[in-house]
Amino acid sequence: MDLAIQNLLSPMVLFFALGLAAASARSDLNVPDSVAKLLALYLLMVIGFKGGVQVALNGLTFGLIATILAGIALSFIIPVIAYGLLTKMSKLSSVDAASIAAHYGSISAVTFAAVTGSLSLLGLPYEGYMAAVAAAMETPAIFSALIIARRADGMQQGPLIPPHLLREVALNGSIVMLLGAFAIGIATGERGYTALKPFLTDLFPGFLCLFLLDMGLVAGRGLGQGRKYLSPAVVGFAVLMPFIGAALAALLARMIGLSVGGTAVFMTLAASASYIAVPAAMRLALPQANPAIALTLSLGVTFPFNLIIGIPLYIALAKTIAAP
């Protein structure tokens, strides 16, 4: 209970709530789009760079390789489960269900930042390479969803994933930033981290709060516009799916032997849904899908659910699940 209250009263959650409240009250408060994009790039840069530095410091350990492989496997499998659930629970078209499934198989960088922020406040360490795991879990879900959509439509001809699409998804700006910063982190190690520490660490909580204010505004306005898509079945899916992802991640984390903090981060990654990289990729890969449905669910329902209820719950569960 203390953890939940502490989480609810954290500046991150309160700034998100401020954005939601401002949007609901139809305030003209807004973050300029170029600033929002800069904040997203900053967030990806910090996560990628810090992950790379940790790999440089600790080397290629069993834990790193096993967790990355487990993360890739989850990112492929979660869309299959999500698609199955959506087609059983709702009346969505197969292409909409596949698009939503891709969002839930991928990860949310902001939710990752929020859980690591909560762990820092609680003084719970986590494996530094989890940023690398986050990067690895970003894209497999996109390809998994594409395969699902093609099978659902009975498309047998042509390559499973067209080469031009593979290139466009792999070179998506957010993925290039995350992986590029990760590579620079590995290359420069502790020396690079020391040089950038004021920018990467000291300013991070403030920028994250600003980012969450924007997320609250976008989520609040998105909910206003996308309310018509929120049938009880799809809202139920958006709340149920994080638990399924988190449960699978908890099982794998226990097998790998992750710490309490690492288990909480891995559960949160699997429970989160993308709204930066995947929406753009879906407009390229599955243009027939309605983008408003997936975005309303991932940003308007699952993100606040994870931020307010999920993260403290995953941390509490990780304390009982993680290897001693």
Binding site: K37, P279, A292, L295
Partner: peptide, 16 residues
Amino acid sequence: HDGSWSIAGQISDAGR
């Protein structure tokens, strides 16, 4: 068709 939208605050290219 799906209502009004704005570029303000959009973090992804998908909303632009």
